[in-house]
Write a protein that binds this DNA or RNA. Structure first.
Ligand SMILES: [Mn+2]
Ligand SMILES: [Mn+2]
Ligand SMILES: [Mn+2]
Ligand SMILES: [Mn+2]
Lengths: 220, 220
DNA sequence: ACTTTTATTTTGACTCTTCAAAGTAGCGTG
DNA sequence: CACGCTACTTTGAAGAGTCAAAATAAAAGT
């Protein structure tokens, strides 16, 4: 069995390789895993020996087939656990990431399958992050953001990219959660602001930076 | 935070001190934790330095107040998780111990409280083991067993002491689960056998040894 | 091209948990 | 009381994961 550390390294290589040339830098990993760079080099060398990653010294690292399989299984656990914590235990979606960070290493495949069934085989977690299937397939659909989509149109929130507790609380406060429908009233590049009108409630204004963290889908 | 190993040691000291003079032997711990005795000595010395146990060299170990508090919290997690796995996820009660052995170290107090509420604040787990309260109280009621209780009377099963998968499967097969009512037909000390008649179904015969693993309460 | 900056790797050390094997204390039996 | 068995402790070594700090390679500036 893979240790906790191994699972965390692989999962973060997977997450960081989303939308890059596929090569993940040691520095990025060190930052994400909150360890010093030397530690990453050491661990990656070990993972390469195990055939879980391919390391190109001084350039970066990518997952092998086996490594990717393992990483996807950890990510599936993480996101299904988050979904359980929010949908069943009614926990705040800004807190579940931390919990899942531990639980993802303690859950067996059998428990996971039952959790999946209990939740109705969800395709995404509470943040809109896609949940890998048991077979290791993960949706990689490309969406626009509130900073880039067409204005004066209705859109549906599909995913929140920035998942710091603060940002998630801000989003929740304005009911900007996956599934929420809203109208993009205006976007002012000069001022760097976007104005939104939710289906119900008052208008919301936010910076382009914040708007870029919210993925949306054109509606109707 | 206490590491996984520390939590396991403390939990097993607690479990093994049930019904002894309070002193747990190194050998018993080594057996329960599946490590060699020397390892236990080393670890216990460390725990004593941390003020979690009191070690009397060559005699045994007992929990301090702090150690007991921690051990009870781990045990509470273990048993609530088992209850969740059986009651909500419908897992086989012979498999949940292993799962809980991992999950007990990954669950936060907040998740635990919500789980507790979801389950309706159960007093016992699926095996009839008492669940410590959040305040660290644990019921220590004394029950008879099918090997010792009065014959020709109705009794209710309250707890299964032997929790190997095989024994639990045997018990389940005969519906000998906490809550089950049955009539103690006969006990033959010479043959070392006990005969039972469940409320519904055919009579069950089992050895005194097996019967001694099943705690019961006189009914009505 | 030469120099400075930045990213990565290497080295040596440390903590935690474990084992194998050798040493020791305590006990009961004769 | 001495012997020998058993339980316990000690010692030395190992693997996993980490950090601090020094060394090196690559990239960026001048
Ligand atoms: Mn994790
Ligand atoms: Mn998520
Ligand atoms: Mn455990
Ligand atoms: Mn139990």
């Amino acid at each position: 069995m893979a240790t906790m550390a191994v699972e965390n390294y692989l999962k973060h290589v997977l997450l960081l390789s989303e939308g890059g040339d596929g090569l993940v830098s040691m520095g990025a990993l060190a930052g994400a895993l909150e360890v010093v760079p030397g530690t990453v080099t050491t661990m990656i060398k070990a993972l390469a020996d195990e055939g879980l990653v391919e390391h190109q010294p001084r350039h970066g690292v990518r997952l092998t087939h086996d490594g990717r399989r393992l990483a996807l299984s950890v990510l599936r656990k993480h996101r299904l656990v988050e979904t359980f914590l929010v949908n069943v235990l009614k926990m705040d979606w800004s807190k579940v990431h931390e919990e899942a960070e531990q639980l993802e290493h303690a859950i067996s495949d059998e428990v996971l399958d039952r959790l999946d069934a209990l939740l109705g085989h969800p395709a995404t977690d509470p943040h809109g992050d896609p949940i890998p299937t048991r077979q290791g397939k993960i949706s990689s659909q490309v969406y626009g953001t509130l900073a880039t989509c067409v204005v004066e149109r209705d859109v549906r929130v599909v995913r929140i990219l920035e998942q710091s507790p603060e940002f998630l609380q801000f989003a929740e406060h304005h009911r900007l959660q996956p599934g929420a429908m809203l109208h993009v009233v205006d976007r002012n590049l000069t001022a760097g602001m976007v104005t939104l009108k939710p289906g119900t409630g008052r208008a919301i204004a936010m910076s382009l930076t914040a708007a870029g963290k919210i993925l949306v889908q054109p509606e109707r």
